[in-house]
Write a protein that binds this DNA or RNA. Structure first.
Lengths: 256, 256
DNA sequence: TTGCTCCTCACGTCACGTGAGGTGGC
DNA sequence: TTGCTCCTCACGTCACGTGAGGTGGC
């Protein structure tokens, strides 16, 4: 036999590739190529008599396009659209970008939420599962009351304050609430001077939280109305205490 | 019959809820609750004689926890871990956050890539599918050669330059390449003064791209070596042209 | 009898991974 | 005969959505 006749299946048609060779060349798996065949995304040029897939150079070029588009995150279906049903490429990419950006925004919010949850988890000594769950519920319920812009504003203020500033604010609230509880336990009337002084501090802290923004004030008021003081105060104030403080606040002269 | 005996199935056990009522109360679908039952995440307290699910208050509390953890993006399996196999909550959240942040970083890179691809798509007059595909390939192949920090640096420089600066840079390159092609076509030798002048401009533009960073210079050189001039120049320079310029660059005196 | 709620299968989603079981080519 | 490559099913993934077909309670 002449040397030219000694050939592997691979070489029968020059430039044709078997599935394994193509997989190795592109870094894809054999399974992936079979999948692309099954859904009609990349059908091999021909089959050998024993049923083996044989890919032509044309197939290879198409595969490179597929891989490129996959890296952009397009779905196989969208790729079929671009390659075979002449979907406008620019338009497809534009839409895809919009989609990705949308998902990104959601992920970022989730990230911020998780970070805050984690911070409060680490702050609290022995956080009960229940306290934790409540923190999440409060966070998600209250977020529902603010517009995206307002949430952004609150977010910005937190950034301004920084880690330390936030902890300080939390300490101030905790101290104030303790002080109010003490007066309540001591039987102080809401309109007596000591409570009026605490109410002033209370109003100042709320002012600090809202930053004087009317929209945020209204949203906070809505949370009080519809979800009660516990939700509005992130679980720190119970209804009776709030009623007590409310009377003192009502007895205050209008804000200077 | 006494009035007390006239009851709906719903009221047989007070406080018990049928699946539809629970779904309505939580905003989940009936299907979802059945799914949670099927995987053992939330099994109803009991079944009525006709097989209807009956949820107790205890079930409801558990469901609220499930919903809260879902909002953080935990998988149902992770939730089972937290609720039943006392997985450490803080640890679970920490890991989940790390996971989300990782995905976020990938998404952000994808977003930047898409934005750039889109920008170049819009810049080019009649972008062929092939040109486009090549742009993606070039982008992904070359990105492989830079470290994350280097990519960040390049990203930063692009931000500094702004839209207009980038276009200007692209114009400069296009003009320079045209000028070199003209000299080549005119038969100018690489070492003749006109080409030496062009080579100086060439070196200056490269300097501008690398920002003088040695690491980026090395990465760019690696792309030339391993992927050829076409990839390194984002598809704008073919090998012969590069060789021609290369001779002129070699004939230049060392950079001032 | 008519609605309404509930029930149990069971397929589909997206892009493959991962065997099971078998055959052709050196 | 032994490896190696290749083949075709077919199940599993994640959290349900969506029918199909049927039954109990007012």
């Amino acid at each position: 036999v002449a040397a030219g006749e000694i050939m592997t299946d691979n070489e029968h048609a020059p430039g044709q590739l078997q599935i394994g060779a193509l997989a190795k060349a592109t870094g894809l798996t054999v399974r992936t190529l079979r999948h692309y065949d099954a859904i009609g995304l990349l059908e091999p040029d021909e089959r050998s008599y024993s049923g083996r897939r044989s890919y032509s150079q044309e197939n290879v070029r198409r595969l490179y396009r597929i891989v490129a588009l996959r890296r952009l995150g397009l779905s196989l279906d969208e790729i079929v659209g671009v390659l075979d049903r002449d979907t406008d490429l620019t338009e497809a990419v534009r839409q895809h970008l919009a989609h990705v950006e949308h998902g990104l925004a959601l992920q970022q919010r989730l990230c911020r939420t998780l970070t805050r949850i984690l911070a409060s988890l680490e702050l609290q000594h022995e956080p009960t599962l229940d306290q934790f769950i409540q923190a999440i519920e409060v966070m998600t319920v209250t977020e529902h009351y603010y517009t995206p812009e307002q949430l952004q504003q609150l977010e910005n203020r937190r950034d301004e304050l920084g880690e330390e500033g936030i902890r300080q604010g939390e300490r101030h609230w905790a101290e104030l609430i303790e002080a109010v509880k003490a007066e309540q336990a001591a039987g102080t009337q809401p309109v007596e001077p000591p409570m009026l002084e605490l109410a002033r501090r209370w109003r100042a802290l709320i002012q600090q939280f809202t930053g004087g923004d009317e929209g945020i004030k209204r949203s906070l008021a809505a949370i009080y109305r519809e979800q009660g003081p516990k939700a509005a105060s992130q679980g720190t104030v119970d209804p009776e205490l709030m009623q007590y403080v409310g009377q003192a606040l009502a007895a205050l002269p209008p804000a200077e």
